[in-house]
Design a protein around this nucleic acid. Structure first.
Lengths: 334, 334
DNA sequence: GTGAAAGCGCTAACAA
DNA sequence: TTGTTAGCGCTTTCAC
């Protein structure tokens, strides 16, 4: 059986309250002698506070939930790392939950985490149907990466909401424009589409329009954010529109698939087809040819989210919306 | 304020005990009518059990801790995915903690997690100094990937210990032998070395000896399990022993670094130098040239660990040692 | 079938 | 400066 405040109190000849005060530190008025003896005894006995009891009493778990599509995607793993590092600094731990972008799983997870009394949730939402699919926000929640429209936020109920994101629309506008600038006249778009109104696609489409290029649905393919979507996507596009000369990819995983399949088909990159990704996962720079991509500040996305959440939990500072910048990484595929 | 058993009890005109029994399901002797009304009311009120209270009472958190070096390493992310999937099946959640292989951080984390009352811990241990650096095992713990010698296990104290691992020594023996079979006479070894007695290096050395090749310390470089170690390692080796004609890499990240630096130096792979990795992370097959490597069953490592742990927690089945098989993935770098 | 009593370990408010 | 009282929400005897 673990050692409790009571055990220490008995040996020190004081009450549990005194022990509690001393051990918790902070401001109290306990004599130096008592303090010292309590600290010593606690050390000797190897006292470790019982979190469940503290939790029940204080309604604080010092845990934050991380709801994400899939930790095996390096982009989300980087966010996780930022989260965990920042959380640790403040004595918080991270409860991870993979949703696979499954809306019902997401709901279940959200409820589950709130009953576990996480103090806050960092949520990379699937955004199916363009709206958050949880009945109500019960816990302070920061949405990362995928933005929520303000009307969704209003609708969501009681607990406060924050957002950390990048301007994906602009990023995709820029990268599409970059391809066009390099001479592409038939740039394709391969991505996932979890919401009706996809910002990445919007950026692509805007750039096309700006440069007087007519959008061609044979050049657009939507699947998931994974390598297979890249492979299948470019294969499909190659069959429908063999004159494709550029590919704007929804993320780097897709881009890697595109590179792979293009290689199999003997199409040279960037000679025949130019390719650009999104995220700048760790491996982007080790692809051959090295992947040109738009870097998301993934680690910072996580760290900022955790910092915002914890500062809200501890000091009541309000949650906020914050946009982080992307950075173009020109390498060899354009 | 959240709805409690008491709220339901009042409306249903029964005691909290009755409500608790019904809601928890399982075997009890409550009349169908009472049951039905309790269930209905609980549903209406949106009852969610308070985990902290349950925890305090039952000493079960339904959480398992995952202590790992770095979630940004895809190998550990894959394990995490296996863990989480298996844990979810049984109603458990995963608390992640990145240690960066820092022994003192590991200790702190281990203690922290046990005070959070995790029901078990899955531990990818740093194994510095060839022994586990935690004072005593307080919680059922399964060591994954890095094996613990049985003497370490005995020493560790009270709570039971399990292990899921692969035969790294054999794997490295085989892959070194493979390089030799392809004609390498000066195969190098680049890896991390966290313990004095490193199994990966042992396998490499054994193979050398078996084939009558004298080990040459200029061909051995140890750093960390990351890309930079591969880059620095091969750069260093190239300067010391330019006749190197093969590299056995401690993991795929290192191999990727080696490939990168070899390319910069104009050395052809596999023409001039043959390279083999370890893990088979997702990106191994998308390197150029495609990385030949030994696949670890990373997802299964995680899933098995969770299954073992949970079965022990729930049914008291003993923890055990289990070895999983690796599989050679011959691609283009040898 | 159902409920009363007790307590898990801790902390907040108030007394002394 | 220290202690008393009370209770967080739940579950576990055990009695009815």
């Amino acid at each position: 059986m673990a050692v409790t405040l009571k055990d220490i109190a008995e040996r020190a000849g004081v009450s549990t309250v005194t022990v509690s005060k001393v051990l918790r530190g902070g401001k109290h008025h306990i004599s130096a002698a008592t303090q010292e003896s309590i600290l010593r005894i606690a050390g000797e006995l190897g006292y470790v506070p019982n979190h469940a009891a503290q939790m029940l009493k204080t309604r604080r778990s010092h845990q934050i939930g991380y709801l994400l599509p899939d930790i095996a995607n390096p982009f989300f793993a980087d966010i996780a790392r930022g989260l965990d590092d920042e959380a640790k600094k403040h004595g918080y731990n991270v409860l991870m939950y993979n949703t696979d972008n499954d809306p019902s799983g997401e709901q279940e997870a959200y409820l589950g985490l709130s009953s576990r009394m996480v103090d806050g949730i960092v949520f990379v939402h699937s955004l199916v149907n363009d709206e958050i699919n949880i009945p109500s926000i019960r816990v302070p929640t920061v949405f990362v990466d995928r933005t929520i429209r303000s009307m969704d936020v209003g609708k969501s109920g009681n607990a406060p909401i924050g957002q950390i994101f990048v301007d994906a629309c602009k990023a995709f506008f820029d990268s599409t424009e970059l391809l066009i600038g390099r001479g592409c006249v038939r740039p394709a778009f391969i991505s996932a589409q979890y919401r009706q109104h996809d910002l990445r696609m919007e950026g692509y489409l805007n750039a096309l329009e700006t440069h007087g290029i007519t959008a061609d649905e044979r050049l657009i393919y939507c699947g998931k954010y994974d390598v297979d979507t890249g492979i299948n996507g470019i294969r499909h596009i190659l069959s429908m529109a063999p004159d494709v000369d550029g590919v704007v990819c929804g993320d780097d995983l897709i881009a890697i698939g595109v590179l792979e399949e293009l290689d199999r088909n003997g199409r040279k990159v960037p000679g025949d087809v130019r390719v650009i990704g999104f995220d700048d996962i760790y491996f982007a720079k080790y692809c051959r040819p090295k992947l040109t991509t738009v870097a998301q500040p993934s680690y910072m996305l996580g760290a900022e989210a955790a910092a915002m959440l914890i500062s809200h939990i501890e000091n009541g500072s309000p949650l906020y919306r914050k946009q982080l910048d992307c950075a173009l990484k020109i390498r060899e595929t354009i």
